[in-house]
Computed example of a mutant assay.
Amino acid sequence: MRPLSLLEARVLGVLVEKAHTVPDSYPLSLNSLTLGCNQKTARDPVINATESEVQVAVDALRALNLVFESSGSRVARHEHNMGRAMSLPSQSVALLAVLVLRGPQTSSELRANCDRLHRFADVSSVEAFLDELAERPVEKGGPLALKLPRAPGAREARWTHLLCGPVDVSSMPVAAHTEEFVAAGELASLKAQQAALQSEVAALRALVERLYAELGVTRS
């Protein structure tokens, strides 16, 4: 499958999302689909596509068998065929849809944001499906997800989709590779604990000195 454009990927992601979140209105009319693409919330980046532009994207996705047009209605309605067309389980479809709609995210963020599309038992199950997408063999179309380098100050690495083609990570800032990385909040907490312990040790030392003095014991 060729790389998708930003709008094509957005259309596909919206169709996957709305199939779960507004099943009574699904499949979507062109107007509803356009509104979903142009949402200001839960979208990164925010776009402002016209209905004609969305229609062009829908037609391109239909040519790839990723979208179907439903029959039997006076208004044309559209539904995705992502799972079957790309031989992907529903869990992977949900993860890719959320990455397409919301941009790069950590495994924990993906688990939370996928909740209405698929409820993952834990973060490890999310990572298992992400690893499958990242290791998808060439004969099946190649990788569809990529784990980005951990950014400076970040505790977790983020994931991104590859539906729109390869991602250049060479210019991305990368955190130092060390297992001793501690987030700023944790560092402040550790310093506070250290100060409290030092205060306790000083108080205990003063108490011992006083006891020695009261007992008339000379420290050796």
Rank of each mutant, 00 (worst) to 15 (best):
Val169Tyr: 03
Ser189Tyr: 08
Leu187Asn: 08
Ala60Ile: 00
Leu211Cys: 08
Ser25Arg: 15
Leu15Tyr: 06
Pro45Ser: 07
Thr41Trp: 05
Ala192Phe: 05
Gly153Cys: 11
Leu144Cys: 08
Val46Cys: 04
Thr106Phe: 05
Pro27Thr: 11
Val54Arg: 04
Gln194Asp: 08
Leu6Tyr: 00
Leu215Ala: 15
Gly103Met: 07
Ala176Glu: 14
Ala202His: 08
Glu109Tyr: 02
Glu51Gln: 15
Arg155Gln: 10
Gly216Lys: 09
Leu61Val: 03
His20Pro: 00
Leu7Asn: 09
Leu30Ile: 05
Leu4Asn: 04
Leu96Glu: 05
Pro166Ser: 05
Leu66Pro: 02
Gln91Val: 03
Val100Gly: 00
Thr178Glu: 11
Glu186Leu: 11
Asn31Asp: 13
Pro166Thr: 02
Gln198Tyr: 01
Gln194Cys: 06
Asn31Met: 05
Arg74Lys: 13
Leu28Val: 02
Ala157Leu: 03
Ala49Glu: 04
Ser25Ala: 15
Val14Phe: 02
Leu204Lys: 11
Phe68His: 14
Ala112Asp: 14
Asp59Thr: 14
Glu180Asp: 15
Ser73Val: 02
Leu207Phe: 03
Ser125Thr: 12
Thr41Leu: 13
Ser5Met: 01
Leu15Val: 07
Ala175Phe: 02
Asp168Cys: 09
Leu207Asn: 08
Ser32Asp: 15
Gly216Met: 02
Val126Lys: 05
Pro152Val: 06
Tyr26Gln: 03
His177Cys: 08
Gly13Asp: 06
Phe120Asn: 03
Val208Met: 09
Arg102Ser: 10
Ser87Asp: 14
Val16Glu: 14
Pro3His: 06
Phe129Glu: 15
Ser189Trp: 07
Gly36Tyr: 02
Ala184Pro: 01
Ser125Leu: 07
Val54Ala: 04
Glu17Met: 04
Ser90Thr: 13
Ala112Phe: 06
Glu186Phe: 01
Ala97Val: 07
Arg136Gln: 02
Ala134His: 08
Leu35Asp: 14
Arg84Trp: 10
His78Asn: 04
Ala63Cys: 01
Glu69Arg: 14
Pro152Cys: 06
Leu162Ser: 04
Val201Gln: 08
Glu156Ala: 11
Val174His: 10
Val67Thr: 09
Ser73Met: 05
Leu35Tyr: 10
Pro27Ser: 11
Glu180Leu: 14
Thr178Leu: 06
Leu12Pro: 03
Ser125Asp: 10
Ala85Cys: 09
Arg155Glu: 13
Leu4Glu: 05
Ser189Leu: 12
Lys147Ala: 13
Ala184Ile: 04
Thr160Leu: 03
His118Phe: 15
Arg219Asp: 06
Asn81Met: 11
Leu64Thr: 01
Arg111Leu: 07
His177Thr: 13
His80Glu: 15
Thr178Asp: 14
Val93Arg: 01
Leu162Ala: 03
Val208Cys: 09
Arg74Tyr: 07
Phe181Gly: 01
Thr178His: 04
